[in-house]
């Protein structure tokens, strides 16, 4: 199916700034879904609030554009309510990990099957360039005019610690890897996290003198390396790309089906324990 058949043309033009990385993520996501041959009726996209969350409006799936930080909570109800759906949850770094941080770790802990895509541009773009939990120490933002003293955390480490059973990272420069990782994440039977470093030339780039969108993408090329590469050993500051975790664990909805079987098999007289 051509890519245009996956988008809602009446929703365009999109609201992303020129050079924004989020369009690349949208493109990669549609190509991943196209390669998987999924029917549009079996996909639900649930998003929160922010630049990244507008992605749900542009695609021709069942789409739920919710409130700030809570996309995974809505998605959990939707998925448990209808486990046959493929649920994809695109989020920004602030949406997923500041206001939504609690839902993020608990969705990971439950291992409920869905694909969380964190489009990490290290800034609150929609509100105009405030620092996010992933901006990092020493960065500049409209709410850190004298430099940011908040430390960031590593999305991959956090996801692994919280129990996500598929954890990967790549960037908008490495678009073929992104398509490949998204395919694997969507197929994964459990909670999958894909962090995509996605440039915001308008705010993060401008505030931190990162140059143009192309400069920022070149930066992703230079500052990242495949997991366990020789380059990483020589330069530990490089950010690793690839699939960090891919393991099998009991999936929440399937486990709940077992609970139903257990409950139904029980006689009425069995007391509540």
């Amino acid at each position: 199916m051509p890519v245009k058949d996956y988008i809602r043309e009446r929703f365009f033009p999109h609201l992303w700034c020129p050079g924004c990385g989020h369009g690349i993520v949208l493109n990669a996501l549609i190509r991943a879904i196209e390669k998987l041959g999924l029917s549009k009726n079996e996909i639900a996209m649930v998003s929160g609030i922010g630049c990244s969350s507008r992605i749900s409006g542009y695609v021709d799936f069942h789409t739920l554009h919710t409130i700030h930080g809570r996309a995974l909570a809505f998605a959990t109800g939707l998925k448990l309510g209808l486990p046959s759906l493929n649920v994809i949850v695109p989020m920004g770094d602030g949406d997923a990990l500041a206001i939504g941080g609690n839902h993020f770790i608990h969705a990971a802990r439950r291992n409920i099957e869905m694909t969380a895509i964190i489009m990490n541009n290290r800034i609150y773009g929609m509100t105009g360039g405030q620092y996010s939990p992933l901006s990092g120490y020493g960065t500049m933002a409209t709410t850190a005019p004298f430099s940011n003293i908040d430390h960031d955390f590593d999305v991959v480490d956090l996801s692994i610690a919280a129990g996500a059973t598929f954890v990967a990272r790549t960037t908008t420069f490495h678009v073929h890897q992104l398509i490949d990782i998204l395919q694997q994440a969507i197929l994964h039977e459990g909670f999958s996290v894909v962090e995509v470093l996605s440039q915001c030339p308008t705010y993060f780039g401008r505030k931190n003198k990162m140059g143009s969108a192309a400069d920022m993408m070149t930066h992703y090329k230079d500052q990242t390396t495949p997991i366990g590469s020789k380059a990483k050993k020589e330069n530990p500051a490089l950010i690793e790309r690839g699939v960090f975790v891919q393991k099998e664990m009991p999936e929440y909805c399937k486990e709940y089906d077992k609970i139903i079987e257990r409950a139904m098999g029980r006689s009425e007289s069995t007391p509540i324990s």
Binding site: V46, R70, A73, F74, T76, G77, G81, Y256, I260
Partner: peptide, 25 residues
């Protein structure tokens, strides 16, 4: 679960109400 329905204990009240809205859809 005895009638094939679903129960989930969420991480807070915010996610609880969000989850039921998702399930209603």
């Amino acid at each position: 679960p005895k009638i094939g329905g679903k129960f989930i204990q969420m991480e807070d009240e915010i996610s609880s109400v969000c989850a039921i809205i998702g399930a209603s859809l």
